[in-house]
Design a protein around this nucleic acid. Structure first.
Length: 819
RNA sequence: GCCCAGGUGGCGAAACCGGCAAACGCGCGACACUUAAAAUGUCGUCCUGCGGAACGCAGGUUGUGGGUUCAACUCCCACCCUGGGCACCA
């Protein structure tokens, strides 16, 4: 007997990765006759190094894709890089390196690290979004939307650092007093002309998830984000200002008689017109304060409500009463009409506001048993209408409809569905992004860049240091241009760039034909591959990215580019991998796990196996450096099973022993198959561990020299292949099977063998376990009952008492109920 | 404040439809192999009490308190705690 070879993960992994790549093993051809399966995992941002979080997202995705492939599908599993964005620009400013250089160097490093994972990515389809060949299609889509009126320009506030003279992203505003992260200057709001995409056009359709196999939590988050509500929008004339009025939206028109004040958002355009001279100073101070606060601050319930009267009065259209107009920061310009009716008796916020400023609180919906006393808090439920003129005595639900009708008849209001969702603001005052393909001409106005002039390329020699403007604005060569319509010289390009969520809204289509110069994707390839069958990625993208890509696909459908409504049929979101201290990994906490260290020490297959074994994928959880040893030991035990010389020996094997082993094998195949279907990698691996132990025990007995045992090893390797692809491939070759294990069919189980012949029947008395007996699986109810009643241990607890009932659960237990 | 997810041994977890709570792994302990150690293998390992003890026997245990049921980690009600998200949404 020669000594067995040791498991040398590094050598095996290097060898097989090179071979797979040379053989283009994972290239997914468009014309393949097998059924297609488009498996997409969210592409990474090239931040520098492949983080353990990337591994946690991608290794199990790869295993699931490999499993699908073994099920007989032609699987496409592409990869690329989300290469535009703020971090590159920050790195550039800090380290005086060009964002492009920084990004491309990171991509190069991450490609190497990604390859070390041994995933079945089809690198021939790689995309990099900062490549003009990619982002020209961002521009093309933008222009299509512009043509159809889905892209428009409007004033919108941004967070602004008055010292650096620059727009700040939310993450660049820090601390409770909201200062610029670079210079510490308090941030203010500034209105800029910016581009929007009309996602609200699709609000109703985006609420429809039928036909989508998406997690409940994502559907709920998107529903809440869209925030549909039904109500009435009506107009309030302003007293002493003929012709002036403003609209309010309410979901409670039934409370209209209870309005005792009105509130405008501090940013409301009418505020300046209506404020009386005596109120102006106080109003200005309040407006400034509101502009300093973040929405989250303004919306905090901890904070006391405050506001300022502007000196003007609005007339309640239902009863002609004049009520004071306030501004208050709890009213947001971006929701509804940016103005509300103040009904303190029936809205808690208005109630607190009215208390603070001693405004009347008029009950118009009587709570049950109400005697006309003062309320302690707003009454929000339905009730009987009072103090409401002709509507007194009506149930409020009916009053809702009657008042709405009356407003519509008189032309002062109309029923309306309102959404919380705003249009998508896509302008960024940044350098490192897709230029917006628009030209402003002194003569022709806003002119789209003609198709043949695309792409509008991002100049590499721009000054991207913070100077106070969009970096492209100071690049004369870029900014100054000729009008494509009139040829005039007095034309300038748009200098803002696009939100990077645009890149990721349609990248799944670009993978189909990443080098196509004539169109965003090849429709023939699209017919074969689309839509995406399975999408995986982090739960943090539950709303924005996943809503934008749904919107984008609906627009593409309306442009005739695709013939389906939803981009991804199935979605699974993994949880977050935490540091060993169960805290979020961060450099400042010092709990960041570097996957490269473990890959070097134990091998990729061990890291992959451990990440999948650690717990349910959708839950996330803490990393444990000790626990990974267990995964490594498991792979070593599989290794030993195949590689170590088999002990010689003789001896008869009973048919029942063979049946027992084969039962184990087939039951395991069933379990692992079911688990992988549902992304339950942890329990799949524990089933494989149990099978490995069983095969290891049988190995040194006569059963270890039977076909049944060899069938078990073969099945074990096949089932291990998606999880630990290198060791499975290597052992497959050593076992004498033909290359490659990754082109084999997933093992099938025989249902008859997967079923157990004997089961453990649990015998209970009053729900307490008193004995367990081995019985044939097909024992009759009658036999089970008799067995229980005759059982000595059961009788000890039954004797002397009366049996009230005997419950038999076939195949599981018998419960004898006494008394 | 609201919404979502979750709370099970020393730790990560399992229990799929209401039917054996703790599979699998980590850690720990004992033993085997070894001159020794590492590695590997075997056995043990939720808590309490009673056994000299292998084997046992009895009771208890899934954040807390109730409820439904022959039977509850699982369903219902109330509460506490943790994590994530957010919108005072008129």
């Amino acid at each position: 007997m020669k000594p067995a070879e040791r498991y040398d993960a590094q050598a095996i992994e290097r060898t097989w990765q090179a071979r797979w790549e040379a053989d283009r093993l994972y290239h997914a051809a468009d014309g393949d006759p097998r059924p297609k399966w488009y498996f997409l995992t969210m592409y990474p941002y090239p931040s520098g190094d492949l983080h353990i979080g990337h591994w946690y997202a991608m290794a199990p995705s790869d295993a699931a894709a490999r499993y699908r492939r073994m099920q007989g599908y032609n699987v496409m599993f592409p990869i690329g890089f989300d290469a535009f964005g703020l971090p590159a620009e920050n790195a550039a400013i800090q380290h005086d390196i060009h964002p492009s250089t920084w990004t491309m160097e990171n991509i190069e490093r991450m490609r190497r690290q990604l390859r070390s994972m041994g995933a079945m990515w089809d690198w021939e389809r790689e995309i990099v979004t900062c490549d003009p060949g990619y982002y020209r299609w961002n521009q093309w889509f933008f222009l299509k939307m512009y043509e159809r009126g889905l892209a428009y320009r409007a004033l919108a506030p941004v967070d602004w650092c008055p010292r650096d003279n620059t727009t700040l992203a939310r993450e660049q505003v820090v601390g409770e007093n909201r200062v610029c992260e670079r210079c510490g200057t308090p941030v203010i709001k500034r209105n800029l002309e910016q581009w929007f995409l009309k996602i609200t056009t699709y609000a109703e359709e985006l609420l429809d998830f039928s036909g989508l196999d998406w997690p409940e939590r994502v559907r709920v988050a998107q529903k809440n984000w869209i925030g549909r509500s039904e109500g009435v929008e009506f107009s309030l004339p302003v007293r002493d200002h003929p012709g002036k009025s403003f609209a309010v939206f309410t979901t409670r028109p039934d409370t209209a008689y209870g309005m005792t004040f009105a509130v405008l958002a501090p940013e409301h355009p009418l505020v300046d017109h209506l404020t009386t001279p005596g109120r102006r100073a106080e109003v200005e101070v309040y407006k400034f304060k509101a502009a300093r606060a973040s929405d989250i601050e303004r919306l905090s319930t901890e904070k006391e409500r405050d506001g300022v009267p502007i000196g003007a009065y609005a007339v309640n259209p239902v009863n002609g009463e004049a009520v004071p107009i306030f501004i208050a920061d709890y009213v947001l310009l971006t929701y509804g009409t940016g103005a509300i009716q103040g009904v303190p008796a029936h809205d808690q916020r208005d109630f607190e506001f009215a208390r603070k400023y001693s405004l009347p609180i008029r009950v118009v919906i009587a709570p049950p048993g109400w005697q006309g006393g003062e309320l302690e808090e707003a009454y929000l439920d339905e009730g009987t209408m009072v103090n409401s003129g002709p509507f007194d005595g009506l149930p409020s639900a009916e009053g809702w409809q009657r008042i709405a009708e009356e407003m519509e008849t008189r032309g002062t209001g109309r029923r309306k569905v309102n959404y919380r969702l705003h249009d998508w603001l896509i302008s960024r005052q940044r350098y490192w992004g897709t230029p917006i393909p628009i030209i402003y001409c002194q003569t022709c106005g806003t002119v789209p860049v003609p198709d043949e002039d695309l792409p509008v390329t991002l100049p590499m020699d721009a000054q991207f240091m913070p100077t106070g403007e969009s970096p492209l604005k100071s690049h004369e060569g870029f900014r100054k241009t000729r009008c494509p319509q009139c040829g005039g010289e007095e034309a300038e390009r748009e200098t803002d760039t696009m939100d990077t969520f645009i890149d990721s809204s349609w990248y799944q289509y670009r993978y189909l034909s990443p080098h196509d110069a004539a169109r965003p994707f090849d429709p023939k390839a699209g017919l074969h591959w689309l839509p995406v069958d399975q999408y995986t990625g982090g739960i943090e993208h539950a709303v924005m990215h996943l809503l934008y890509t749904r919107f984008w696909t609906k627009v593409m459908r309306d442009l005739g580019l695709v013939d389906f409504d939803e981009p991804m049929v199935r979605l699974v979101n993994q949880g977050i991998i935490l540091g060993e201290d169960s805290e979020k990994m961060s450099k400042s906490r010092g709990n960041v796990v570097n996957p490269d260290d473990f890959v070097t020490a134990l091998g990729t297959d061990t890291v992959r196996t451990y990440l999948m074994f650690i717990g349910p994928w959708e839950g996330g959880g803490p990393w444990n450096s000790r626990g990974i040893e267990g995964a490594h030991r498991f792979l070593q035990r599989v290794w030993a099973l195949v590689v170590e010389p088999q002990p010689e020996g003789d001896g008869g094997v009973a048919a029942s022993e063979i049946r027992e082993l084969r039962h184990r094998i087939h039951a395991t195949i069933k379990r692992v198959t079911d688990d992988l279907e549902q992304f339950r990698f942890n329990t799949a691996i524990s089933a494989l561990m149990e099978l490995t132990t069983a095969l290891g025990r049988a190995r040194s007995t006569p059963v270890g020299r039977t076909d049944a045992w060899r069938e078990g090893v073969r099945a074990l390797l096949l089932m291990l292949a998606p999880i630990a692809p290198h060791i499975a491939e290597d052992l497959w070759a050593r076992w004498g099977e033909a290359y490659s294990i990754h082109q084999q069919r997933w093992p099938a189980y025989d249902p008859a063998l997967a079923r157990a012949e004997m089961i453990t029947l649990v015998l209970q008395v009053d729900g307490k376990v008193r004995d367990r007996v081995q019985v044939p699986a097909d024992i009759t109810e009658e036999d089970a009952r008799r067995l229980a009643l005759e059982n000595a241990k059961v009788r000890r607890f039954v004797d002397g008492k009366q049996v009230a009932d005997v419950i038999v659960v076939p195949g599981r237990l018998v419960n004898v109920v006494v008394k």
